[in-house]
Design a protein around this nucleic acid. Structure first.
Lengths: 162, 162
DNA sequence: CGGGAATGTCTGACTAATCAGATACTCTTT
DNA sequence: AAAGAGTATCTGATTAGTCAGACATTCCCG
C-alpha cells in the first residue's frame, strides 16, 4: 500500500484509493436512490429537501442565502437559482434583512414546513432500508460518529465559495 | 427517534436523517475538495479520473460504454459525452467491438495510463489528509468495511439506467 | 468622517448532465 | 428465416449547476 505506484493497474488497485472510491460510490448511489424517491413521491429535488431541513433548523427568522451556500457546497449563484425555484413552488419566501440591506432572509412557508415533514417520512423509510440495514448494529454508533468527524474535517477544509 | 414526526423542526432534528445527511455531506465535500485538486493539478474532472481507474482495472481489451455507465451512476448518453471529451483529450480510444457490432469498446491510451498514475499520486496525498486523518486508527478497518457493505447494498438497489 | 476593500445577491454566458427518441444491430421464438 | 423484442450508442432539447462580472451596501482604517 505504501509502495510507489508506476502503472495504471497498480493505481486502480491502490487500497486507499479504493476505500475512498467506496465512500463516494456509496454516497452517490444512496443520494441517487433517495433523491429519486423524494422526487417521485414529493415532487422536490434532493437538494431542495436539504435546504428545507436547513431552514427548518433555523426557525422563524430565516437565514441569509450566504449561509445556505456555505452549508451545501453550492455557489451563491446556484443558491439564488435554487431558491428561485423553491419560491416558485411556494416552499420558501424571501424577505428583506433588516440588519443588512444587501442581503435577504429566506424562511420556510407553511407549505414548506408541511413538505419537510412529508419528505422526511419518505426519506426515513428509505434510509432505514438502504443505509441502516447494511451496517451491523454493533458498528452503527461508531460509524455515524466517524462520518460526523469526516464531515466536519472536510467542511473546515473547503475554501469559501464565491 | 422512533416517534412520529409532525413538525419541520422535528424532521430536521431526526437522528437518522442527520446521520445520513452527514454521509452525504462528507462525501460531497470530499468529492469537491479532491475533484478540485485533480482538476487543477491534472487537468481532468473527478469523473474522468474515476473512468480512468475503471478502464485501468479492465486492461487491454477495453470495455463497452454500457459497463461504464453501470459502474458510475450515469446514463448512457452521459457516458457518450464524457468519453467524447476524454477522447478529445487523448486519454481513451474507442474501437469496434468484434463480438457485438452495435457496441464499441473503450480502452486507455498510453497518455491515459500516464494520467491515471499521475492523478492517483495527487489523489492519494489528499485522501490521506482529508479522509484518513480524521478517522481514528482503530476504527479505520471497520469503517472501510462498512463503506464497502453500504456501497454494494446501494449498488444492488439501483434500477438500471437507460 | 471619507474612501477603498469586502460582502451579499443577482445575472449572462457557458457546461455537463438528463431524458426521450432515433438508429443499428442482436437475440429469441416460432 | 422472419418477426418482434431487446440492447448499445448517439443526438436534440432541456435543465441545473458553475464562473465572472455588475451593483448595492457595509465594514474598516487612516
Amino acid at each position: 500500500m505504501g509502495e510507489e505506484i508506476t502503472t495504471a493497474k497498480e493505481a486502480a488497485d491502490d487500497g486507499l484509493v479504493l476505500a475512498f472510491g467506496r465512500l463516494l460510490g456509496a454516497a452517490n448511489r444512496l443520494e441517487y436512490l433517495l433523491g429519486r424517491a423524494i422526487e417521485e413521491e414529493c415532487g422536490i429535488s434532493h437538494l431542495m429537501y436539504e435546504v428545507l431541513l436547513i431552514l427548518a433548523r433555523e426557525g422563524e427568522a430565516g437565514m441569509p442565502m450566504r449561509a445556505i451556500s456555505r452549508e451545501q457546497v453550492l455557489t451563491t449563484g446556484g443558491v439564488t437559482r435554487l431558491i428561485d425555484r423553491m419560491e416558485a413552488l411556494g416552499l420558501v419566501a424571501r424577505g428583506d434583512n433588516p440588519d443588512d440591506r444587501r442581503g435577504r432572509l429566506v424562511r420556510l412557508t407553511e407549505a414548506g414546513e408541511r413538505k419537510a415533514v412529508e419528505a422526511t417520512r419518505v426519506h426515513r423509510e428509505n434510509i432505514e432500508r438502504y443505509f441502516v440495514a447494511p451496517i451491523p448494529a454493533e458498528h452503527r454508533e461508531w460509524f455515524a460518529e466517524d462520518l460526523r468527524k469526516l464531515s466536519h474535517a472536510a467542511r473546515d477544509a473547503i475554501p469559501r465559495l464565491r
